[in-house]
Amino acid sequence: MSYVTKSPWIIHYDGSSCNGCDIEVLACLTPMYDVERFGIINTGNPKHADIFLVTGSVNEQNINVVKQIYEQMPEPKVVVAIGICATSGGIFKECYNVMGGIDTVIPVDVYVPGCAARPEAIIDGVVKGLGVLAEKRAAMDQKPAAPAEAEEKEEA
């Protein structure tokens, strides 16, 4: 059994969200919803995180930030797009600086639509993400040789 699903640590990034979805994400941590009962911790550090929650769409300014956070997270990792903005660009889709949903930059595993996405829906999305996390962890076990080789090459 994989322990990843029992202790998913989250990093939350606000793309160009209107803050509506952000407040709902933070509401999940309050006594009302208390996601810590699933072992979920809101960490500020991508290197400790397992699940990347993104709210809001990607624009020209934050595209590199989103990419960097994603790249700094160690495998296995899952990306959850919160809100319709993060899913497709939503109400901001037509803006001249908006590229669209998060999946235009990094691979997204779970989409949580809604404007704003409700805390229940966000928790649901994260729990769905846990399934993906377990699959990715199992995949890591099956082909552990490939990344190791790549690392050695880099060093040489």
Binding site: S2, Y3, V4, K6, S7, E36, R37, F38, G39, D50, P74, E75, P76, R137, M140, P147
Partner: peptide
Amino acid sequence: PPVLQPFYDFFKLLEKE
């Protein structure tokens, strides 16, 4: 969280890349 949560965290960290 469950009382055993720190141990889950510990084993999870061992599983990470």
